[in-house]
Design a protein around this nucleic acid. Structure first.
Lengths: 232, 232, 232, 232
DNA sequence: AATGAATGAGCGTTCATTCAT
DNA sequence: TATGAATGAACGCTCATTCAT
């Protein structure tokens, strides 16, 4: 007997499908944004930033919208001008934060480098774009709250994970074809490639204070193992 | 691949509990328990079992003590006879569930087998004793609620993780010494060995409904990679 | 018997409004209205019409000014340019709608017809001018919200009811004097004459969907009883 | 777009059907009520009484549950031990208050008296059992809130009005058959008989302070008119 | 005059915790 | 011990009202 009804979530999920942005960058007829609109967009960002902070610190259930508002420098009611409810705020936050990540990863599939070089480079990107940024908090939140937000999990799977895995799959296939990679199983289980990343995120959020983890070094070690490199 | 039937889980949970009461019936030094004490201990166990179920399903914040009480077949107030408050119940639960885990793993350090055989055996144990049992839920809960329960995270780190890692460290060191394992880095980052396990746990709780993951196959693939085995 | 189509109602409402502006185009003493003033008056009317609709549908407390504004095609703030607050809007609405009613009824006192003919004619007027129009909603609202708006109740009593009852009193007295009516008590209790009208209004708003009431037939039956007519 | 969903109301309506009371008055096995139960029943009554007061004064929407609680001498949360929500409290209140009224009226159908005597007696009963009691407030509330609570209106129609009208119908039919009553139309429109009652209720709640109405005298006058009595 | 974004007081509802029985 | 009725602080959300533009 979960608190929220699945139907409401499913309904909202529909709205998670990437809306076709009718305003293209080069659109000449687009009127310049008025101060109103700029202010409004800034407020929305402020609320999202505050929500990220509060959700990260307290989790979805324990985060108080009043604190989000206070942190964003707006009144409680203002949140509801931009988001339908607490749940929508959370989902919009996740979408907003993760969308750019996908583009980054998909980019890798197009780069034609030897796999080892590509892997090292991917570690750099992940280290900079994920670890230590707010995005890792979002991923943690999705894993943390996912079981109670099936729609969010589905969105994340559909819009983020499946795309990332598809891109990784291409890269790996190419590497195998070129004889740069022995382990075909990685194509079937791309999770194995991502696992250390996940562990780094969880570790540092849970045990970081007790025993910090050098995530980059660990990721490098992982690549070495996958490539059966180094250490010798 | 639905999570699993509650009855099986409860049965399994029962088998986890005896570890706590080390006294056997014939134990001379133990004063015989009165019916009162037996009943009392049984109640505490019932509450813990119910709490595990509820916390696993709803998370700490959303779990309702009323539901825990109902599931345990006691009154709401009774919980407070055994646990100071909701937080204490959660922490006690985690502690009680984790204690037996350590023994299991430390056991491995004493087994003198070739590393590949040991690794395969470890996968079997993990698959049967962790995946698909309520123990995985406890681990998920610690990762999930850890940031909000520093004391619990510290306890887990000190009493469980550090011991497990120490044991793993011994095993790995021996394997390296014997030339059964190339990658010394694993000794520094035992997390890399555990990562796929963690991913399997999280994946199936978050995305299991969307796209189930064959955890055992993935773990096998991981060992193959670490040992630079197979696939060819 | 669905309430009625909004379009018809709106049209009818329009025809109610002119009563407020007594100045005719050729009125010399009136300074000619600028386009500004005309627009302004039109807006006020639009707001009143929208308010009538919303208050009728939802009651005073549940009616939302945002919905009133939307229906009137103005912004929320605009309402406050014409009315001090929600309560004032409601009271102004009631006053504006009721003013024309009185003239109608007072007219009857001046018609010199035999009472039975007058009564039958009154039923026709009531049926067409009250039942099924938005006027009945205003009356319902006054009865419904009256206890919480003493000032409105007093206004209604003073400006509408007492005048209507005075007019009815004259008619009845004449009928009694002429021997057309036995029951002098009606002069003391004109409510008895109006009661079926009131019941028709309330019935159809509350139970209309369950069991529609043929108001006109009921009113006719009532007159028959009062005049001790028919049926035989 | 009414505030509450009809489905929820319809669902609740099911529960309005008179539950078969399994405990009959003469039930020997019924254990005497403990102090607990007595206190509990008293509390429920206190809450209902307080709710009646608050709903009567403020209407459903404007009544504050905090005030109900305060008036009942309980905490806000206590209300929710006895009633699912504000709406259920309102509906239970209506049911509780009106159920006894029906029995009263149905009783009349069994009394074999000349119609004039019966009518006079009915006025007495109504005057004592309805006018000036809390029950008139309930009836006013049902008429007032009915349009927004279709389930309540339906309940009132089914459980109260239809039964009362059926009983009145029998009485009237007998009166017509015996030649004690001319106006057969009353059988078709029992509302005409009840109309003055309704007017008395509404009048005194809305205009009682401005101009009190002698309800009993008015009802008597109405019976005189129906019977074409008196005045002469 | 007109707008509508912003405000924040207010209320229904939940649930951990207490305590009389 | 055990109960579960009672409590009341807390929080999500609404909406009348304000005010900068």
């Amino acid at each position: 007997m979960p608190p929220q009804s699945p139907s409401r979530l499913t309904a909202r999920l529909e709205s998670l499908r990437p809306a076709a942005s009718t305003e293209k960058p080069g659109d000449k007829t687009a009127k310049p944004k008025g101060a109103r609109e700029v202010r409004s967009a800034a407020r929305k960002e402020a609320i999202l930033a505050a929500a990220l902070e509060e959700f990260s610190t307290s989790g979805f259930a324990a985060a108080r919208l009043e604190d989000v508002a206070k942190r964003a420098g707006v009144a409680k009611g203002t949140i509801y001008l931009y988001f339908a409810d607490k749940e929508a705020l959370f989902q919009d936050l996740a979408r907003e934060m993760l969308q750019p990540l996908v583009a980054h990863v998909e980019n890798f599939a197009t780069i034609d480098l030897p796999f080892p070089a590509l892997a090292d480079s991917m570690i750099d990107v992940m280290t900079h774009e994920l670890l230590g940024t707010r995005r890792q908090d979002i991923i943690r939140l999705i894993l943390t709250e996912g079981p109670r937000f099936p729609a969010l999990a589905e969105f994340y799977y559909r819009e983020v994970l499946s795309k990332i895995f598809a891109a990784i799959g291409q890269v790996l296939q190419r590497a195998v074809d070129r004889g740069e990679l022995r382990h075909k199983a990685l194509i079937e289980f791309p999770q194995l490639l991502a696992a250390p990343m996940l562990v780094a995120i969880m570790w540092n959020s849970v045990f970081g204070a007790i025993s910090p983890l050098d995530a980059k070094a660990m990721l490098k070690a992982h690549v070495d193992i996958v490539l059966n490199r180094g250490d010798a």
